[in-house]
Design a protein around this nucleic acid. Structure first.
Lengths: 353, 353
DNA sequence: CGGTTCGATCGAATCGATTCGAAGTGTCCG
DNA sequence: CGGACACTTCGAATCGATTCGATCGAACCG
């Protein structure tokens, strides 16, 4: 515990001198690229050992190489919020898989982070935008100006950005279709935040023009494709608590909806708890459908009807895209598809039973 | 989607030239530190705008300044595993809070990541070691040689490393004491991994000498302080599934233990499910105690008796320590305390009822 | 009206490694 | 025995910004 101070670090030049070789040779010995005799390498390594040299300074190497081996993962919210939803974790896992395999570290950034913005000052080779929205334009702009390749997950197609998409609209429509086929005519929605602010309010009629979060809009559109008109609540985030709050509000509506569409599984679980609290039987009195397909154990004891998205695959695709982009290739944008899992939380509408 | 190629980036020198000032002045204009007339700043900024200059290259700035504004967070496992346990997420959240406030980004690294090791080649100013074990020595060594301040969370005290601790042993003992006061004489443990490998096996008698994960050892010691002898299973990780597997095994023992000590709440939930599966009533037939104190909703419907650790605080402390270390100060090591939350999963031992 | 002081701007050195072409040393073959 | 070739090693330029001391002007004061 005593000596946390950092002693002056020896440089490659110092090592080279001690080893009796030039700096360039020493560099070759470390990087491994280039022809260096075994004996020389030994000598350099020994000198490094003797001086307590820990290898080339990544900062200098990054400057010279023009690469820092870091991929930025940009999230809008506080990091905690981002980690709170298992679907993000799964996705991040996929990213880490691919990027990590290529030797890149993941730098977690928030759009709001820092004063001038970490986006501008963080050393990275490329960026992955996650859960994009309002500030996306600004973020993309900042990143592009820095000359960084940008991959966005679930965002509008836009110039200079490779998009990894999800069939949010079609999937939502499929879910809604499932409800309609069960005879539901009165459905309500618990929407994800529209624009990163507030929430906890009724879904405004002009959501389509007001909302800025791509995912939220698309999922709402999908629902509207089947049910032209529906009431709803905007959740404060993708959490069980937010889902409960929203669920309570929707269940207090008159007439009470016979089905609730939640835009994430966590929200759905919250709704289910609110329903339970209200003494409703699922799916007898109320059908609930989620979105994401997080691990079943987290939804337990319910077998949630939901749209299962290949989150980890999505992450992998983003990670792989970044890697290829950095390699100078031009990967194709991708769009993943969800699968409807019909569980035990949806059933025939009460009125038609 | 068309132009993902990266056009050659203008440099500060180019901007300076266009603005008709020297590079040094342009630098001042951007960094804001130093006296620059408003007019000049305007001109420089305008020139930057015109050239599409996105600000100083962080790599070059990092080299010159000797700072990259990045704090490495080193985890042993795959990232996904680390995120899987909410307690880690909470802790990471704390770290992000403090580090983020100081303008630092979080670089996620794994000890095994990359070939030569990201630990050696990642640009960062300091490192926080999380969930440390076997490879800790090597990791610390590598980092220290690079001259980086190192903060370790829950690790043995060691030279050159600032430790943020937790009273794992005392807390575990308190939990065990709680069980003993309820009359339990036959307790079993579901241990966290001993050394990052395998698991899913009975707890070996020589765990104390074999195990390398600090947290696991300390918690086992705490239990032994109260119960000198106990059977156990080593889980494959801190997950509900692993807890279920371990729970099934322990419940199959003869005689069946009347209480099970799980070394994490997720494991405890798994044990509870295994108990439920076996038709046991909680706490009538079996008492279960966890460790961590993750959010109650995740443990629902149980009110788990557990040792609540201030995970986020721990993270904040680590983050704050790193920030202070980087500021040249010498923060004190800290040790946090757990609080026993007596829930509804522990009760009098069957035999004494 | 000259000297002083303060503020803005500039030059040049520096951070620490990487890289490419050139030079040096042996070896092998004709 | 001389020339070509292979393999190492070395020098020097470069990556792009930051920073410190010096310079230059102008305003201010006596």
């Amino acid at each position: 515990m005593s000596d946390l101070a950092i002693p002056p670090r020896p440089t490659l030049a110092a090592v080279a001198e001690l080893a009796g070789v030039s700096a360039s040779t020493a560099s070759l010995a470390f990087s491994g690229s280039g022809p260096v005799s075994a004996a020389t390498r030994e000598r350099v390594l020994a000198a490094a050992e003797q001086l307590g040299y820990g290898g080339p300074d990544p900062r200098a190497a990054a400057l010279r190489r023009g690469r820092s081996g870091v991929v930025g993962v940009v999230m809008e919210d506080r990091l905690a919020d981002a980690f709170r939803d298992p679907i993000n974790v799964a996705m991040l896992d996929g990213v880490a898989d691919e990027a990590g395999a290529a030797g890149a570290g993941l730098l977690l950034l928030t759009e709001s982070g820092g004063e001038v913005g970490q986006l501008t000052s963080a050393p990275m080779d490329a960026a992955i935008l996650v859960g994009c929205s309002t500030r996306l334009d600004e973020s993309v702009d900042r990143l592009r100006r820095r000359g960084l390749p940008v991959v966005a997950i679930e965002a509008d197609d836009r110039e200079g950005v490779l998009t990894i998409g999800l069939d949010n609209r079609e999937a939502s429509a499929a879910g809604a279709e499932h409800l309609r086929s069960l005879g539901h005519t009165s459905v309500a929605v618990v929407a994800l935040p529209l624009d990163g602010t507030g929430g906890g309010t009724p879904l405004p009629a002009d959501w389509e023009s007001r909302a800025t979060v791509h995912t939220t809009i698309e999922r709402l559109r999908g629902l509207r494709d089947v049910y032209p008109d529906f009431p709803g609540v905007v959740a404060t985030g993708s959490t069980i608590e937010a889902g409960m709050d929203a669920g309570r509000e929707l269940l207090a509506l008159t007439p009470r909806p016979t089905a609730i569409v939640a835009q994430s599984d966590l929200l759905a679980v919250g709704v289910l708890r609110a329903a339970e609290e209200a003494g409703l039987r699922i799916p007898h009195d109320l059908s609930v459908i989620g979105f994401d397909g997080i691990r079943p154990e987290l939804v337990r004891p319910w077998d949630l009807t939901t749209l299962v998205q290949p989150a980890q695959e999505k992450g992998r695709a983003a990670g792989a895209a970044v890697v290829r982009l950095l390699a100078g290739e031009t990967p194709e944008p991708a769009c993943f598809r969800c699968a409807l899992h019909v569980g035990a939380t949806t059933g025939p509408a009460p009125s038609v039973r």
